[in-house]
Design a protein around this nucleic acid. Structure first.
Lengths: 232, 232
DNA sequence: TTTTGTCTTTGCGCTGGCGCAAACAGGATG
DNA sequence: CATCCTGTTTGCGCCAGCGCAAAGACAAAA
């Protein structure tokens, strides 16, 4: 029973399955196939034919996109209760990103046909999915704009705050980013280099805004960081 | 009659209304309200409450996003047969961009309720819309990646090619970008400055890859430009 | 405990691209 | 035709941020 990681707790709080009657949730759940991934294992790779969508119950998934020259960008992190690979609903499409578990994760995979079936059975799911994709589009558009007009230090501030909001956990020293996040990760997320990230985090640590460790960041003074992100 | 700009020609070839039976198209059309915009006039502004979606019959719409500091980015151009502001389907949302006609344009406006009604009456429209948004998400993600890893000159090449594909017209001197496109516009689209764009276009003109005029670009050697965009 | 591997820090030199300033050019207007 | 307005070009100086290299620090393994 517990190996189902209580989807009954997560579904009603998720954006995708909100508005579905409690009683119908086991039915929706039964459409999918639950599976687990260890850290470092890919759910799918960029360019693969897209045949499944994934709903995350537990853990954390990293979406990355590769450039032919070798460098990559981190597109976003997927947290429990969120969904990825809506693209699979459409025939003849390929995954535009690679999805990799960065923690031990449990997900539910829906393949195209069952996804369409769920959407037909529960039309509100289709509309919710549209809402999710629209929201992500706006999110990337914002980051694209920031990329164009803001200096590196400001972008890192904003990105750190964004990650903090999505995946932060309150502790008594401040808000802890709740997963392994290296300097290189932050660099790939903001479009800079690990050297620059390191220099900037060091300077913030001296000012007392954050506390850092190996692959670990605690934001101890979010207020100052927000002020900095907004004014430069 | 002709003031309806023949939606019967455009609907069947559009991604949104593909798969709808010919005979039903006048019905779909009747859900919306057709209107015209002169160049420079805004259909909606970033931040306004989003209550209408727009389908373009004729002309061209520019989507821009503003940064508090004053600079802006051109998010994309909307051509005839395309749609924008899917966000309006959702209550309590605001337009994330500003839409402005850059040519005399005719569009059909669907407000939220009628949009939902069309989607209920023709479920395929909802799925098509999801497909359109997914595609744009992938497009922005690609540009975001390019922004991070490519040098300015390469990004301008890629952007010029992208615009050329979407809005180019064959002439005997090469492929003409079919609307007023200034150095500043290209700079706002690629995230650089008009000075840099000017310098780079000049160098390409000397190499014979393009021919330029005031707010006018003709790509005379697309092949070389593609090679450059891909190898840097 | 020592070792090994990975992650992080920091000095240093270099350069792509920014942005001012000023001249130039082409359309539109009267 | 001359004028005005807006867009374009180009010289020049500057600096944010890159990226190498080498040392330091932490975690897990042996």
């Amino acid at each position: 029973m517990n190996d189902h990681t209580g989807f009954l707790d997560i579904f009603p709080r998720s954006e995708l399955f909100a508005d579905i009657e409690e009683g119908k949730l086991p039915d929706v759940h039964s459409y999918g196939r639950q599976c687990a991934y260890e850290p470092g294992v890919a759910l799918f790779r960029e360019g693969d034919p897209a045949d499944k969508s994934f709903f995350v119950l537990k853990g954390r998934i990293k979406l990355t996109k590769l450039h032919p020259e070798g460098r990559e960008t981190i597109v976003r992190y997927i947290n429990p209760g969120e969904m990825t690979a809506a693209v699979s609903v459409f025939r003849e499409r390929n995954y535009p990103v690679t999805a990799e578990a960065i923690e031990t994760s449990e997900v539910i995979a829906f393949d195209r046909e069952t996804m369409l079936e769920v959407m037909r059975a529960y039309p509100q799911v289709a509309i919710n999915l549209l809402g999710i994709v629209v929201e992500r589009l706006e999110n990337v558009q914002s980051r694209y704009l920031e990329m164009q007009v803001e200096r590196v230090e400001q972008r890192i501030a904003r990105s750190l705050l964004r990650i903090m909001k999505q995946s932060g956990r309150k502790t008594d020293e401040g808000i802890l980013i709740d997963f392994r996040l290296s300097r290189k990760d932050l660099a790939d997320y903001t479009g800079t280099t690990l050297y620059t990230v390191s220099r900037i985090l060091s300077s913030w640590e001296q000012r007392g805004w954050i506390a850092t460790g190996r692959e670990r960041i605690i934001v101890s003074d979010p207020h100052s960081l927000v002020a900095f992100a907004e004014t430069g």
